[in-house]
């Protein structure tokens, strides 16, 4: 005799939680299937002798600033620091991007400054990308800009990420362009730009002075 069982949505949800929890624990935590490696390389920081080392695939080395390029060199400060997307050395202060990864490998970006004597890190601007310097020497910081690896147009997780942020721009190329004095770390002015992340605008910012970027009188 068949007995009829009543479908319970609550029981179905419980099954979903348990089975998917098991699968996700195995795939994401144990096997790290979603690892997203930016690159494998060392970038020297000017003439200081220190290098920025990116995460090595299939390696036990952590990303960070090292005393050299060899495997026995010491890690002075760990973190995913950028070099190729715009870094600036002012005396013993190294301004760069710090990338932070989500579980599935999306990178967010903050501008930080690192004292190369004490190796203390200080946040300069959150959710911001350092993209070199302008013609008058100020650093160009794009606040709210997102790395292309977020696939902002097609990725709904990115839209969920933006929902509670007052800074991150949901529109792909938009950003607020801040000019930061590298000697003092002070923000000397900003301007909103819908196409800040395009190649043409980046060249404009790098080739223009502060007055040209911010407008006359600033």
């Amino acid at each position: 005799m068949m007995t009829q069982t009543k479908f319970s949505m609550n029981a179905f949800l419980l099954i979903v939680i348990l089975l998917s929890g098991l699968y996700l624990f195995i795939s994401v935590d144990v096997h790290d299937m979603a690892t997203f490696v930016v690159t494998n390389d060392n970038y020297p920081i000017g003439e200081t002798g220190y290098v920025v080392r990116y995460q090595q695939q299939n390696s036990h080395d952590a990303s960070g600033i090292y005393t050299g390029e060899l495997s026995h060199d010491k890690c002075m400060i760990s973190g995913s620091f950028g070099h190729d997307w715009g870094a600036y050395l002012e005396g013993n202060t190294y301004y760069c991007n710090e990338y932070k990864k989500t579980k599935l490998g999306f990178m967010t970006c903050d501008v930080v400054k690192i004292d190369l004597e004490t190796f203390e890190k200080e946040l300069v601007m959150k959710d911001t990308m350092l993209r070199g310097t302008c013609a008058s020497g100020e650093m160009i910081c794009l606040q709210g800009a997102v790395l292309p690896g977020w696939f902002p147009k097609t990725n709904p997780l990115f839209r969920m990420f933006c929902l509670s942020s007052s800074r991150i721009e949901a529109r792909q190329n938009a950003a607020v362009v801040h000019l930061v004095d590298p000697k003092t770390g002070a923000d000397v002015g900003s301007v909103a730009d819908d196409k800040a992340m395009t190649t043409e605008r980046e060249h404009f910012y790098q080739e223009s002075s502060r007055e040209e970027i911010l407008g006359k009188g600033r």
Binding site: L24, V28, K100, K101, T102, K103, L104, T108, L157, M160, F161, C162, L163, S164, S165
Partner: peptide
């Protein structure tokens, strides 16, 4: 609130 938790934990899980 969930978005804030996502940004704080950086975890899609």
């Amino acid at each position: 609130l969930l978005s804030w938790v996502y940004r704080a934990t950086r975890s899609e899980m």
